[in-house]
């Protein structure tokens, strides 16, 4: 695939989207440049709505979304520059993958026999299965077929809604490598995910959306630090809760501790040091740890913390 030039920019300015009384997206502003940007947030946070706004499939209730200065909504010409991989598994089940990607090429006005179809299928490693009907495809394969269809015209902006859903680990790694490679060619890649590790692995920049608002944005390491520096709680089950608790109480990293019903709850303000210290303390006390579970490690609690900051 050829490098994309000149630099394409996406600008989202004070965008809001509401349906009647329900606010899906509230006053969000950000800009996108070539590279991979991850859109992170819990389910129902408005990620899909935001991506649909960027892709010109929804009209902003307020604010504006532009690609290279042109509003994306109501202008089919924008799809010369933009490709969208929707989350919904909606495909034409009666088409083969090749037909599906060819349809996309035709509707993009690509000349017949330009090789774009084969190239796109090869990029997502579907060449061997390309002549099977999409109805027979697994979820991950359908996902890749949709990516091929969105890539066939070499778009400068690629928007993907939960692209890793339904993929096995190998496909996931391949898709991550693909997104990186596409970004290295100078493309603007924006993808959504509710899984922190996915975003961490592939995105250079992160937008965190919670309840329709932009809770944080910027470099991933910065956001990661915000997320790991917050107070953490762990629940432990050990051979001797009382003995371990005695040792833990003396440590500066431990900010709180309760034990009851054969269960030890520990709060720490320094996640990294605590996780290094705990095994040493347990060994020294001759205590076996049967179970160590983060008590509040759900992504929602991470987002809650970010929003409250």
């Amino acid at each position: 695939m050829s490098a994309v030039a000149p630099t394409t920019t996406v600008a989202v300015t004070a965008v809001a989207k509401w349906y009647g009384n329900v606010v899906a997206v509230n006053d969000i502003t950000f800009g996108l440049e070539p590279g991979v940007t991850g859109l992170l947030g819990p389910n129902g946070a408005g990620k899909s709505t935001l991506l649909h706004l960027v892709a010109g499939l929804l009209r902003p209730s307020a604010g504006s979304v532009t690609v290279d200065g042109r509003p994306t909504f109501g202008d089919p010409a924008v799809y010369r520059r933009v490709g969208l991989v929707p989350e919904r598994e909606a495909i034409f089940p009666y088409l083969t993958a090749r037909e599906f990607v060819r349809l996309s090429a035709q509707l993009q006005g690509l000349p017949f026999g330009s090789g774009a179809v084969d190239r796109a299928l090869g990029t997502v490693e579907l060449s061997n299965a390309a002549d099977r009907e999409l109805a027979t495809y697994s979820k991950g394969m359908r996902q890749r077929a949709k990516v091929a269809a969105a890539l066939v015209h070499d778009p400068a902006v690629l928007v993907l809604d939960e692209p890793f859903n339904g993929m096995d680990p190998r496909q996931r790694l391949h898709m991550m490598a693909l997104l990186r490679a596409l970004a290295d060619e100078g493309r603007v890649i924006l993808f959504s995910s509710h899984i922190l590790e996915e975003v961490e692995r592939v995105a250079e920049r992160v937008l965190v959306v919670v309840a329709g608002r932009l809770a944080a944005s910027g470099d991933f390491r910065e956001i990661r630090r915000l997320m790991t520096d917050r107070p953490h709680s762990f629940t432990l089950r050990t051979s001797d809760d009382r003995a371990l608790a005695g040792r833990l109480v003396g440590r500066p990293t431990v900010s709180g501790l309760t034990f009851e019903d054969g269960r030890l709850d520990v709060r720490t303000a320094d996640f990294a040091t605590f996780t290094r210290e705990l095994p040493v303390l347990a060994r020294d006390a001759g205590v076996s740890i049967f179970e160590l579970a983060p008590a509040d490690e759900s992504l929602e609690s991470v987002f809650d913390y970010l929003v409250r900051r």
């Binding site: 892709a55 010109g56 499939l57 089919p76 010409a77 924008v78 799809y79 010369r80 933009v82 490709g83 969208l84 929707p86 919904r88 909606a90 495909i91 034409f92 599906f100 349809l103 996309s104 509707l107 993009q108 006005g109 269809a149 969105a150």
Partner: peptide, 11 residues
């Protein structure tokens, strides 16, 4: 939802 594949084209 397949209409999305038609609407995201410069047609």
């Amino acid at each position: 939802g397949t209409v999305v594949h038609l609407l995201t084209k410069p047609v």
